[in-house]
């Protein structure tokens, strides 16, 4: 698996898109910090970027890489390598190179700006950790979708659709159900609904840092326990890990049963 990871990673690192992605984040970091000159504002803008763009890029990249490396995969399948190793290796290659582009692309400008001496370092590290999680989750989902769909166009469509659903539509439905059932206690429901969407989950994790003062304005005891203590952070991180592991597990399961 390590070898596959190595080749996928090198392969991606040399592809134009990794550079584009890396340069995009580098530029974004520099623009945010040096034109704006305000760390707090930069962190907020970054959060918007991370919870919207990172999943989208993870999805598109994952699907694209899976379909584009079909030949590579087939070449490897005839080699004496375990199947799951091939897919895990490729998956980790994609997720790893994307995460690296993200962390370096944003990390370099922030480090140059003197982040390490500022208190924003925790907020910023949390952003990067969440970004890394989202990259892994969404490239994992994309791999799953691509693995289940031979047809490129269909697979691509489903992947973008699933991103759109999780990034926007889910929250719309969520909001509507909250408003429709507003007479009922909704603490548990809203926390659960958050858990079932990795984007919401990451957003919550960041909210815990950025908007804790607003979150604590809400009356519910369960909310209070969730947001007011470390419970929220712990549960969110556990759920994010589950969200990462389940697609990876399914990837292994499906790949064992698939014909090439």
């Amino acid at each position: 698996m390590i070898k596959i990871l190595k080749y996928s990673f090198y392969d991606l690192m040399r592809s134009r898109w990794s550079y584009v992605y890396f340069l995009f984040y580098l530029l974004l970091g520099f623009v945010l910090l040096f034109l704006n000159n305000e760390l707090s504002k930069a962190v907020i803008t970054l959060m918007n970027v991370i919870i919207v763009l990172v999943p989208l890029i993870g999805t598109i990249f994952g699907v694209m890489y899976f379909y584009n490396s079909k030949e590579f995969t087939e070449l490897l399948l005839a080699q004496p390598i375990k199947r799951s190793s091939i897919f895990f290796g490729q998956y980790l290659g994609v997720a790893g190179s994307l995460t690296m582009s993200l962390v370096l692309g944003l990390g370099i400008p922030f480090a140059l700006y003197g982040l390490f001496e500022s208190n924003a370092i925790w907020d910023f590290s949390l952003l990067l950790i969440t970004g890394a999680f989202l990259t892994m989750i969404f490239s994992g989902l994309a791999f799953n979708i691509a693995l289940s769909n031979e047809n490129k166009i269909k697979g691509f469509g489903y992947a973008v659709l699933s991103w759109l659903f999780l990034a926007v539509i889910y929250d719309g439905l969520f909001l509507m159900s909250l408003i429709v059932f507003e007479q009922y206690p909704l603490d548990n429901f809203s926390l659960m609904a958050t858990m079932f969407n990795p984007i919401d989950l990451s957003r919550t994790l960041i909210l815990l840092k950025l908007d804790i003062s607003a979150l604590l304005g809400y009356t519910g005891a369960i909310f209070k326990q969730f947001f007011g203590t470390n419970l929220g952070v712990v549960i969110s991180l556990i759920m994010l890990s589950l969200w990462t592991l389940i697609p990876v597990w399914r990837l292994g399961y499906k790949s064992k049963r698939k014909d090439f």
Partner: peptide, 17 residues
């Protein structure tokens, strides 16, 4: 919206909002 249905605070900073 938050004023009306306080639980919606959990959707703060979401793309939909």
């Amino acid at each position: 919206i938050v004023n009306r249905t306080p639980e919606t605070i959990i959707l703060l900073r979401s793309l939909f909002m």
